[in-house]
Design a protein around this nucleic acid. Structure first.
Lengths: 196, 196
DNA sequence: TCGATACGATACAGTACAGTTTCGTAATTC
DNA sequence: GAATTACGAAACTGTACTGTATCGTATCGA
C-alpha cells in the first residue's frame, strides 16, 4: 500500500500561482464583472484547460482566491478599547478599498442572500471568522470592564461593521471625512444622548 | 403652431402599467438576476416591441421602476426619539425585506460604486433623499436637546442605517433576534461604555 | 521505450440574453 | 378610406460568456 506517486507529468505549481495571481490582478483592475475565464487564462499565460484541470468551475476558483485573499488579518490589541477600535476601522477601510472590494462585496452579499454555494462558502470562510474575531475582541474588553454588562455582543458587531460596509458601498456619494473613524468610535462608546 | 396631436393609434396606458407592474412582481419573486426582458414581456402579457417603444433599454426601465418604488416613506415623529428610532428601524426592515431588496440593494450598491448611470440615479432618487430625511429627524431631536452637542449627524446616519443594511445583506447567516432593533437603538443612545 | 498525465493553443458546443425586425391586425387622425 | 402609429407574436441577430474537446508537444514513472 505504497502512497502511489502519480504517474505522468506532474502539475506545474507555477501555473497554479499564475492563475490565482491573474484572478487577483483582474479583480483589482476590471472588477468581478470583467473577470472571464478567457481573461484569466490570457493574463496568466495559461490555457483554459489548465484552469479547469485544477478547479471544476469559475465559482470554485473565485471562492479559493477570495478566501485566501481575506485570510491574514490581525486584530489590534493594545488593551485600550478606543484605540483598538479606531485602528481596526482603519484596517478595515484599507482592506476594503485595497482590492476593489466595492465590486466584490456587493456581489458576495447578493450570493449570501441567495444562499448559493458561492455565497455560503464566502460566508463561512470570510465573514463569519471575522465576526468571531471581533466578538472575541469585544468580549475581552468586556472582561476588562470596559463595556456595559447588558451590551449584546452580536448587535455590537453589527454596530461596528455595518457603518464601515455602508460607507464603502456608498463611498463616492459624499466627501470623505478623515475624522470619520474616531467620530464613529466615540459615538459608539459614549452614545448619542446624555454624557459630556 | 398647434400642439400637434399625434396621428395614429395612441399608446395604451394599460400596457405601460402592466410592464412596470411585471417588473415589480419579478423583482419580488425572482430578483434582479432572473429579470429578463422576455420574462417582463411574458409576465405583462405584452410584446417586447411594446417595451422598447417606451424605454430605450433595460437599465432605463429599471431606474424608472425603482425610483417610483422607493418614493413613499414617512418618518415617524412621536417626539420621543427612542420610540421614533425603533419604529423607523422596523419600517426599514419591512421595506427592505418586502421587495426582495436583498437582491436589489447589493446590485445597486455595486452600480453606485462604479458610478454608472443606473447607480447615480439610484443614489439621487433613493439613497440621498432618505439620508436627508433621517438627518432632518436627528436634527430635530438635537434641537429638542435629546442629543449631545458634538454628535456628527452624518456619522449618526451611518451608525443608524449601516447595521440595518448589513443585517439585511447577511440576514440568513444567524437566527433573527426580535429584540434586535431596540437593542441597537439603546446601544446607540446610551453607548457601549459607562452608564447604567 | 512506453504509457500516462500536463501543457498551450484553438476550435467548438451550448446557453443566455439584449435588442431588432417582420407580419398581420387594430385604433386613430385627416 | 388612406396614412400613421400601436399591438402581440415570434423569428431573428449579435454578443458574450462557460465549459468541453482535440491536437501536437513536453515531462514524468516504470
Amino acid at each position: 500500500m505504497t502512497m502511489s506517486t502519480r504517474v505522468g507529468r506532474p502539475r506545474d505549481a507555477a501555473v497554479s500561482s499564475a492563475i490565482t495571481g491573474a484572478v487577483m490582478s483582474l479583480l483589482h483592475n476590471v472588477g468581478l464583472s470583467g473577470l472571464t475565464m478567457d481573461a484569466v487564462a490570457s493574463k496568466a499565460g495559461v490555457s483554459k484547460a489548465s484552469i479547469y484541470r485544477r478547479w471544476a468551475s469559475k465559482d470554485e476558483l473565485l471562492v479559493d482566491v477570495i478566501a485566501n485573499l481575506a485570510s491574514e488579518t490581525a486584530i489590534p490589541a493594545t488593551g485600550r478599547l478606543r484605540d483598538d477600535l479606531v485602528e481596526l476601522l482603519h484596517r478595515m477601510e484599507a482592506f476594503l478599498s485595497e482590492i476593489e472590494a466595492g465590486q466584490i462585496f456587493p456581489r458576495m452579499a447578493a450570493e449570501v442572500h441567495a444562499a448559493s454555494e458561492l455565497g455560503l462558502r464566502y460566508a463561512e470562510q470570510v465573514i463569519l471568522p471575522r465576526r468571531a474575531m471581533l466578538a472575541g475582541m469585544l468580549s475581552e474588553a468586556h472582561a476588562r470592564g470596559e463595556l456595559r454588562d447588558d451590551l449584546d455582543i452580536d448587535v455590537a458587531v453589527d454596530m461596528l461593521t455595518g457603518p464601515v460596509i455602508l460607507r464603502m458601498l456608498l463611498g463616492r456619494l459624499g466627501p470623505s471625512d478623515p475624522e470619520w473613524a474616531p467620530k464613529l468610535v466615540d459615538g459608539l462608546l459614549h452614545g448619542w444622548a446624555g454624557g459630556r
